[in-house]
Structures are given as structure tokens and as C-alpha cells.
Design a protein around this nucleic acid. Structure first.
Length: 351
DNA sequence: AACACGGGGAG
DNA sequence: CTCCCAGTGTT
């Protein structure tokens, strides 16, 4: 028997559907499968689970999601990260309403026309929800293929993809696409793990390239990521009575469409006096207004390191200020706005 | 082809 | 600290 067929047979024999029980498994609703796959992009299952449950409760159907305001959808995504997923999901829900009569399209090709649905997600939805023979190629599958078949092409460069896709097509079980896809991802997640894989009990052990050649810790190969960008964020926590000044981020940058306090950003560390002067002139505040440093932290993102300071000031009625694009919100309305995670930490810290 | 995009967990 | 995670869109 060829090594390729051997793989599929071993895999399906190894797979225990009950071993990894997750809320989006064993469901057939294409909408829920779609939502789960978007949430799971670059996100661990444990982190995804509460967000998935909450999201489905708030937006049970594609119609409900399409009707919702983007701010509501972002609020449901608050703290999860990669917020373009929420924007694209909302956009695509309306696209499905208008172009597919509210039915999630059933083919790989049509699914690719939805914003936020790429090759992985289209293969996942089309196979899980509709039984189409499309193999998924995600981080797990890259790792498994690299080790078992000895593929040395780095998995984090686009040009390697076709090499992995070719090998994947060879071993894919067209007769049982959903089962194969579920199995190979579970196998990667629980057996052929990134570190400390369970080689002694691995069903592929007798023909795995990496095990045979002692390459388990060398495969998959990956190119070094670029260095983190350093950014300095100084926010102003400006209150007046029960009101607080916030603004929406609109740039194509991290946290697009989320809310924040008025911000002074710099590439270098800047002096306290410069920050305060900037706040005064930017918000048209009186010289007598005082600012206290109330919060200081760092945030590590995948490609950035943020040095964050939050300054507080309180205004009397007569000092009340207006700023283009900013809005005063009541404490009681704050929960309606989606903020980056660091503000959640801040709110918890000061309360 | 390279870059941008969050946040959390594990080692 | 580093690496990884059920990746995709933009430039």
C-alpha cells in the first residue's frame, strides 16, 4: 500500500470523535459553522468557546447578524482580537442576505467570495456543512504534513503552500471529506503538537519522516518573524461629572472601529510636559487643568509592543470641552462601546 | 511576496 | 522572553 493511503487509513482509525468535544462539532447549521471557523482563525479553541456561545446567542442567524449594527458586532468581539474578522463577518452577512437570499452558499468557490473567508475557511465550511470534497490546510495540517512527509519548505511563506497542498491532495479521503478534515486537525492539535508531540503513541510512527530522521524538533521549518514595532500610547481619561470623553479609531491600524480615550501617540518616549501640553491644546483645555498619571502598562501584540500610559483629568461644567470626532458618554452607556483589551484591564483596575 | 492584524497560553 | 494558535486582506 502506498504511504499516502496508509496515512488516511491510520488517521481515520486513530480518530475518536468524542475525544475533543467542542460546541461547534457535530452541528450542521452552515451559519454556525461559518461563525465558528471565523472565530477560530488564529485563536485557540479554549479562548474561542465563550465568544462563540455568546455570539450565537446574540446573533442566532445570518439575518440577525446582517440586521445588527457593526458596533454591536464589535462589542461581541471585544477582547478577542483581529477585529477585521468581525467587520468582515458583518459585511458578509449582508452580502449573503442580498446575493444568496440569506442562505450560506454551499460551494467552496462561492464561499470564497465572502469577505473573511479564504481557502482554509471555505474548505472547512464546504466540507463540514455540505460534504464537499475540499481538504483543509491550516496550521495543524502544515505541521503534520511537514513532519510525516518530510517537507522542509517554511510554512510561513506563501510560496510553500502549493507544495503542502499537493501532498495534502494525495492523502485526502474524497469519500469522507468532513471526517478526514476533522481528524487531521484533531490529530495535529492533540498528537502531532508543536512541542512535545506524542510520538510514542503516534499512529504514524512507523513511517513518519521526522521521527525516523530525528527531525521532530526541526520540522516544520519557519522563517524568523520581523522584530516588533515599538509604539508609545498616552491616553487621556477625561471626565466631567458622570461623563467620559471617548473617540472611535478610524485609521487602518490596530483596533480599527473600536473606541478609545483621546490619544497622543509617539514613536519615541516623550516628556510628561509635552504630553500635557498636547492634551491641553488638542482638547482646548485651560492651563489650570491638572493631569495625573493613573495607569501605566505594556501590551505585547504579535507584531507590536505598546507602552501605554493613561492620564486622568476632571472638568467642571464651565471647562466643558468639545472635540471633533469625540463624544461624551455617560458611565451607564459605556458598556455599549467596544474597547481594546487594555481598557478593560484599566477599567477593572480603577474600579 | 511581504506586511498588517490581537490576544492568550505554554515553555 | 519566544512560539503558536481551525488565516485573511491589503499593498
Amino acid at each position: 500500500m502506498s504511504k499516502s493511503n496508509h496515512f488516511s487509513k491510520k488517521l481515520l482509525n486513530w480518530y475518536d470523535p468524542k475525544a475533543r468535544s467542542l460546541p461547534w462539532k457535530f452541528i450542521k447549521d452552515p451559519y454556525k459553522i461559518w461563525v465558528s471557523e471565523i472565530i477560530l482563525q488564529q485563536t485557540r479553541a479554549e479562548q474561542a468557546t465563550p465568544f462563540y456561545r455568546n455570539f450565537i446567542q446574540l446573533f442566532p442567524t445570518v439575518g440577525a447578524l446582517a440586521k445588527a449594527e457593526l458596533d454591536q458586532v464589535l462589542k461581541a468581539w471585544e477582547g478577542l482580537g483581529y477585529y477585521s474578522r468581525a467587520r468582515n463577518l458583518h459585511h458578509a452577512a449582508n452580502y449573503v442576505q442580498n446575493n444568496f437570499a440569506g442562505k450560506i452558499p454551499s460551494t467552496y468557490k462561492e464561499l470564497l467570495t465572502l469577505k473573511g473567508v479564504g481557502p482554509y475557511t471555505a474548505a472547512a465550511i464546504s466540507s463540514f456543512a455540505f460534504g464537499e470534497a475540499q481538504p483543509v490546510l491550516d496550521g495543524n495540517v502544515f505541521r503534520v504534513l511537514s513532519r510525516v512527509f518530510g517537507i522542509e519548505a517554511p510554512i510561513n511563506v506563501g510560496s510553500s503552500r502549493k507544495i503542502f497542498q499537493k501532498q495534502l491532495n494525495k492523502i485526502f479521503d474524497k469519500k469522507r471529506p468532513a471526517l478526514f478534515n476533522q481528524s487531521i486537525m484533531d490529530f495535529g492539535a492533540t498528537c502531532c503538537k508543536p512541542s512535545e508531540p506524542s510520538c510514542p503513541s503516534c499512529p504514524m510512527a512507523d513511517f513518519c519522516f521526522a521521527l525516523k530522521n530525528k527531525q521532530i524538533h526541526q520540522l516544520p521549518k519557519k522563517l524568523k518573524p520581523p522584530k516588533k514595532k515599538i509604539r508609545y500610547f498616552n491616553f487621556l481619561f477625561l471626565t466631567s461629572g458622570k461623563k467620559l470623553l471617548i473617540e472611535q479609531r478610524t485609521e487602518k491600524d490596530i483596533w480599527q472601529n473600536l473606541y478609545q480615550f483621546p490619544l497622543l501617540e509617539s514613536k519615541e518616549l516623550v516628556h510628561e510636559d509635552f504630553i500635557k501640553d498636547n492634551f491641553r491644546s488638542n482638547l482646548n483645555l485651560n492651563k489650570s487643568i491638572n493631569f495625573d498619571l493613573v495607569y501605566s502598562t505594556t501590551r505585547i501584540l504579535t507584531h507590536q509592543k505598546l507602552y501605554v500610559q493613561i492620564w486622568a483629568a476632571n472638568l467642571r461644567k464651565k471647562d466643558f470641552t468639545e472635540k471633533e470626532g469625540a463624544l461624551w458618554v455617560n458611565n451607564s452607556d459605556l458598556h455599549k462601546f467596544a474597547f481594546p483589551k487594555l481598557f478593560d484591564l484599566f477599567f477593572n483596575d480603577i474600579c
